[in-house]
């Protein structure tokens, strides 16, 4: 099978890899770039554990081909903290105990960040609908929602 050379920007760094056209962006991130933050829960778009943004748009990386990443700008959970300094969402997830096994967490963090980028002050219902495609089998969601709302409040105050 012919491999295609792909050049793309991930979390601000230009990277390149060779991809079989059948491979998903999720496979390429994890297996070729060693970025295992995005998780595979289902591989079929249902769970959101693989969430990343492509050119600023939230998507399931399991439903994007690696070859489609050519020339795009991709953001993953690995790009959220600045060195040792966690993103407010990450800090609030720890504070509110919004994670247990952590499989869903990278996807939810990326999805929540995308929401707050376009709506810094979402209502609880808006957060719940926005995150409806991010499944969590551990927490029961409540703590996740509270962590997101709390992080949003803190980010609005510009702490």
């Amino acid at each position: 099978m012919t491999q295609i050379h792909v050049t793309t920007t991930v979390n601000g760094d230009e990277v390149d890899f060779l991809a079989d056209p059948r491979e998903t962006l999720l496979d390429c991130l994890r297996d070729k770039l060693g970025m295992t933050g995005a998780k595979e829960g289902c591989g079929t778009g249902d769970c959101g554990a693989c969430s990343v943004t492509v050119d600023g748009r939230l998507v399931c990386s399991c439903l994007v081909l690696g070859v489609e990443a050519q020339g795009k700008t991709i953001e993953t959970v690995e790009g959220m903290a600045e060195g040792e300094k966690l993103h407010p969402l990450q800090r609030k997830f720890i504070e509110h105990a919004a994670l247990q096994c952590g499989i869903c967490t990278p996807g939810i963090l990326v999805a929540a960040k995308a929401l707050l980028a376009q709506n810094p002050d979402p209502a609880e219902e808006e957060v719940r609908y926005w995150l409806a495609g991010n499944l969590c089998r551990c927490t029961g969601y409540d703590k996740i929602i509270r962590a997101v709302l709390d992080a949003a409040a803190e980010m609005r105050e510009g702490v």
């Binding site: 778009g45 998507v59 926005w130 495609g133 991010n134």
Partner: peptide
Amino acid sequence: VGSTQVQGR
């Protein structure tokens, strides 16, 4: 149709 993520595509 689908989730926020699906709507992105």
